[in-house]
Amino acid sequence: MEFQYISNNADQTKAFAKKLASYLQPGDVIALEGDLGAGKTTFTKGLAEGLEITKNVNSPTFTIIKEYKGTMPLFHMDVYRLENSDEDLGFEEYFEGLGVTVVEWAHLIKDQLPPELLTIYLTHSNEGARNIKLVPAGKRYEELCKEIMQ
């Protein structure tokens, strides 16, 4: 099962993510995939807006994990630099925690991800536009996708 959404610009990407945020609950995990510059941070900014986070959300690449306080906590991760690392980093504490976790480059820690999650692929289509593909794993995320795409 998968769902598609075409976003024409960064604002639409943010608005879509903001809408998604209103359906999320603590313990939800979103895997965010896309090349450098595909709009992963932009998407997360929109999501943060939906969670009423007022602090500026910027890239977590350097620090790997950034935490924000909103209607519920947001754990923003970029695991790019963990490629080829076989360390157990204790991510499950975040995944099973009291907030929403967004993991950029999630496939790099595939073995450590929970079985049920929502994977979102961001890809360039033409100039400025992005193709947003949602792939839910698990009943909860399937229902969630159906509701959003209605």
Partner: peptide, 10 residues
Amino acid sequence: KRFGGVVPEI
């Protein structure tokens, strides 16, 4: 170097 960045647990 071999990880291309800082690995927190390491």
